[in-house]
Computed example of a mutant assay.
Amino acid sequence: IYLIIRIIGAVITIIVFFQVGPAWLYSADTGGTMMGLLCTLIAWFFAASFLIPLLMDYGIMDYTGTLIRNFLWPLFRLPGRAAVDLCASWIGNCNVGVVLTSTQYEQGYYTARESVLIATCFSAVSLPFCLVIAALLGVEQYFIPFYLIMTATGIVSVVIMARIWPLGKKYPDEYYEAVGKQIHEIEPEGMSKRRWAYLQAVTKAAEGPTVGGLLYKGIDMFLGIIFTLVPITMCVGTLALVLSTYTPIFNWISMPFGYYLQLLGVEDAFAAAPGTVVGFADMFIPAVICSNIPSIETRFIIGILSLVQIIFMSEVGSVMLASKMPIKFLDLVIIFLQKTIIAIPIIVLLTKIFVSF
């Protein structure tokens, strides 16, 4: 299936690059958008391919993970080393977060459940992109509460989703079969947590690659991403944008969310409804289609929601499907809808309490 998708992606790339064939495939709203995104993605992936080994192979995650395991496990049911991953995913680029998480799974540091939970719930977009979305929706003057409510909603929604199906129940707590369990965060009896964290970090750093090994690993990772993820992203992302731009499918799907928003007292509920689901195609589209809604409060809510949803097929969704994590397309649909249903009332409540328009 991935071979077929890559071939289709290659064909679409040629059509878009040379602008031949059907115009709806290479227009600025569909293939043209994806071609522009790919340039940014390739730059991010190039940097990430050399930075990710620095996080993983020299003891940072081992030291941090051992120290704060008792904090992360009760809250998110995740190992302590996930803290570095969560920060890199939430603050940095979303695709970098997914690649880092997938690599940790393949190396035996996350179980299937842990890797899918992190990839689908913490791979947020960068801070500058959040500012772009806020500006596009005309709410940039409220950016500080905008970002704080987005962060609070993200945390609360993950606490809930980590304990319910599918993220909390469907995926096994089993490590990647090819390598087995490689994580050892629980300190031995009679040894302090800090001392065990230090020993784990030093041991990992001693086994880390040399400068030449680091460069080789980075180049290998980058080329793997380019030939594996880029054509898949081009294929899935372009087709998703075609559906969003030229068909009413997202308008039909969003009807129940119109009533949901109306029930929660959101103004212009049905005008905003498509913005609640079209983010599955691309995170930028909700801001585009909702930028003309009269209510500032509604634009504020939709902007936060689009950033909290995280899963969008033009980038992150495609990267997840191409990874070795045990996640399927239908799983992404279910998790996206579930997160949307959980996040909307949290965003609406926090907005009405803390923001005065």
Rank of each mutant, 00 (worst) to 15 (best):
I1E: 14
Y2Q: 12
I5W: 03
I5C: 03
I7L: 13
I12Q: 09
T13W: 13
I15R: 02
I15W: 03
I15Y: 05
F18A: 12
T30F: 01
T33I: 06
G36L: 03
G36D: 09
L38F: 08
L38R: 11
L38T: 12
L38S: 11
W44C: 12
W44I: 12
F45M: 15
F45D: 07
F46L: 15
A47M: 09
A48R: 01
A48L: 06
L51N: 06
I52K: 02
L55C: 11
L55V: 11
L55S: 10
M56T: 14
Y58A: 10
G59A: 05
Y63S: 10
Y63N: 10
G65E: 10
L67D: 12
N70C: 04
F71T: 14
L72W: 02
L72N: 09
W73T: 13
L75G: 08
L78T: 06
A82S: 15
D85G: 07
S89H: 07
S89N: 12
G92N: 11
V96D: 06
V98G: 05
V98E: 03
V99M: 12
S102A: 15
S102I: 04
S102W: 04
T103C: 07
Q104C: 07
E106A: 08
G108S: 00
G108N: 01
Y109D: 04
Y110R: 00
A112S: 06
R113I: 05
T120S: 15
F122M: 12
C130P: 01
V132P: 00
I133K: 03
L136Q: 15
Y142F: 14
I144D: 11
I144T: 14
F146H: 08
Y147K: 05
L148R: 09
I155R: 04
I160G: 04
M161V: 01
G168N: 01
K170L: 13
D173Q: 00
E174Q: 11
Y175C: 00
E185T: 03
W196T: 11
W196E: 10
A197N: 06
L199F: 10
G208E: 10
T210Q: 08
V211S: 08
V211P: 01
F222P: 02
L229W: 10
I232Q: 14
T233R: 07
M234W: 06
G237E: 13
T238N: 10
L243D: 05
S244C: 11
T245F: 04
T247G: 03
I253V: 08
I253C: 00
G258F: 04
Y259G: 15
Y260L: 06
L263Q: 02
L264R: 01
L264A: 05
D268S: 14
D268V: 02
G275H: 01
F280W: 02
F284T: 14
A287S: 15
I289K: 07
S295M: 03
E297N: 09
I304K: 04
L307E: 10
V308L: 02
I310D: 05
F312M: 06
S314A: 15
E315S: 14
V319Q: 07
M320A: 08
M320V: 08
K324A: 08
M325W: 08
F329V: 09
L330C: 04
L330G: 03
L332S: 07
V333Q: 00
K339R: 15
A343T: 12
A343Y: 00
I344V: 08
L349Q: 06
L350S: 06
